[in-house]
């Protein structure tokens, strides 16, 4: 992996100092889902995602993104959807590196973030990692231009982890859903039971 491409200080330094190969990954951020880290990213051959894309993805999403195959998929698919994408990535990467932004919030406050072309690149990368797919899903059809990046590792689950389900996984026992997450403002006239219920509420606790 070509570490010489990035400077020793500046925007991506923090990311370089963390060992890219053994990061905290999405694990810490998806509390409780315990998704493990990928311990190696695919060896550098042609077609492997360039460091610029990896670092830019990490910068834009604030995540360690240690799933190497997912990174490769995102790169290949985004490049296929837009032939200008590789150049746009290289350009944005060097712009961010030379501006020395410490974090995404700084970048978004800067004039660079007003540039439509830059925003297009940011949007494509954000969507790929947050939604977990590239392209636009078609409705009622078997064919579209979408490509898979990740599912359980999609960053859109990060903010609601432990509060909402990642579909197909469970948060717990039958009827965990009757109570809202702690701290919710509950209306006074809330009714927890069905009117006209059978006497026993359904529960896995029925012995």
């Amino acid at each position: 992996m070509n570490k010489r491409a990035a400077s020793k200080t500046g925007a991506f330094a923090a990311i370089r100092r963390r060992d890219l190969l053994v990061g905290i990954g999405v694990v810490a951020l998806l509390a409780g889902s315990g998704i493990a880290l990928e311990t190696s990213i695919a060896a550098a051959d042609s077609g492997a995602p360039p460091v610029a894309f990896i670092q830019l993805s990490q910068f834009i999403t604030g995540a360690d993104l240690t799933d190497g195959p997912a990174m490769a998929r995102a790169w290949t698919q985004l490049s296929a959807l837009d032939t200008g994408f590789p150049a746009a990535v290289a350009h944005l990467h060097s712009a961010v590196a030379s501006a020395g932004f410490k974090a995404m919030a700084d970048f978004l406050a800067s004039p660079l973030a007003k540039d439509a072309a830059v925003l297009k690149t940011v949007s494509a990368i954000t969507a790929a990692w947050y939604l977990g797919y590239t392209g636009t899903p078609g409705s009622l059809t078997m064919t579209d231009n979408t490509g898979f990046v990740t599912y359980t590792g999609a960053l859109m689950w990060r903010p609601t982890a432990g509060l909402m389900v990642i579909p197909t996984y469970s948060l717990g026992a039958t009827n965990y859903w009757v109570d809202p997450p702690a701290g919710t403002a509950i209306p006074k006239n809330i009714k927890r039971d069905w009117t006209g219920s059978t006497p026993r509420a359904s529960s896995h606790k029925d012995a």
Binding site: N175, V178, P180, I186, P187, R192, W194, T198, S202
Partner: peptide
């Protein structure tokens, strides 16, 4: 005859919309 099984618990979302 009654339903074979009792209903599941009411989701908070349903409760909140019903309350409103």
């Amino acid at each position: 005859k009654p339903y074979p099984l009792p209903a599941e618990g009411k989701t908070y979302m349903f409760q909140a919309l019903e309350a409103g």
